[in-house]
Design a protein around this nucleic acid. Sequence first.
DNA 1: TCACGCATGTAATCCGTTACATGATTCC
DNA 2: GGAATCATGTAACGGATTACATGCGTGA
Lengths: 176, 176
Amino acid sequence: MALAHAILAVLTNRACSGYDLAKQFDGSVGFFWNASHQQIYRELTKLEDRRLVDLEVICQVGRPDKKLYSITDAGEALMREWIVQPSPLPPVKDELLIKLFVGQLVPKSEIQALLQQQRAQHEEILATYRTIEREYFGNPEALSLEARYQYLTLRNGIHFETGWLAWCDEASDSLS
Amino acid sequence: MALAHAILAVLTNRACSGYDLAKQFDGSVGFFWNASHQQIYRELTKLEDRRLVDLEVICQVGRPDKKLYSITDAGEALMREWIVQPSPLPPVKDELLIKLFVGQLVPKSEIQALLQQQRAQHEEILATYRTIEREYFGNPEALSLEARYQYLTLRNGIHFETGWLAWCDEASDSLS
DNA sequence: TCACGCATGTAATCCGTTACATGATTCC
DNA sequence: GGAATCATGTAACGGATTACATGCGTGA
């Protein structure tokens, strides 16, 4: 059900088309919730049926019409109720750890290579996060409340990726 | 597809019934891959069709028969091939972060409560991990290769949960 | 006697992924 | 001329979740 909430969360900040949403789910929000454009389009029609979003069709010259969705009062009320419910921890699903669990099946060097490959990916994401931190949240004291909440989600990603790098190094050391 | 690999990983260590597997996916392996008993039973029949597991029916008195599955040579070969492929980063899906992203919709105290509730859950899991670390991996230098790999997956969980606690505290402070 | 553990499954529904499909405009 | 961007969708398939279903044994 959380895809609906993720979409409503984006629409809380500003009205969007399905296409705009898909792009957001490929950056910012996508850092903690991902969804393909097909999922988004399907979910938007459901949200419209439930009157949680409003739709305004914008005719454009030379490009396809745009369906601009905005959150309704009912949608915002639903979000308020949902936010205050306690959240269970999200289930972990990490195939690298399955591989490590039976790492003895292959030569150690293969596992070392996997760890390095994984480390590089985490490093890349961390670099992206750091760039965003510098560019948009340079002075955390001066942020609006909205921006501060968004900054906290970014900080979560930074903690997460930093932890991964530390673990990759520890694991790599302990195998050599 | 990784559920099949997760099951084969467990069976690499020892032969199990569907029921045994379900229990493992509720502890050890479940720390990084979760699956319900329905998924497991369905997947086991598929794995048998593909000759990746063997089945031995064990008749028991006074309890239901047990179907004991073990990995075949083909299954082990498949795992070896799979392990060395590079792994993409698993997609993140965390509804707490969606909530924080639009935290301004509710009073700050509600968000503080969410953070505390989340923190408590992460602390509990970390405590579980620490107990396992003490009981099974007290002397990391002396571990067999199998055990060392399993220990690394546990260390990953410890890094992960420690990071979460740090972030919860940082977030909580920054809001007060 | 009632709940829990052992042990297995089916059915319905929903969610996610992949592939296919269209069509104009802008930039290289 | 060809690729990328804007903008929307359908169809098929497979994976995951939830609910339903059975039945014996053991211990409180």
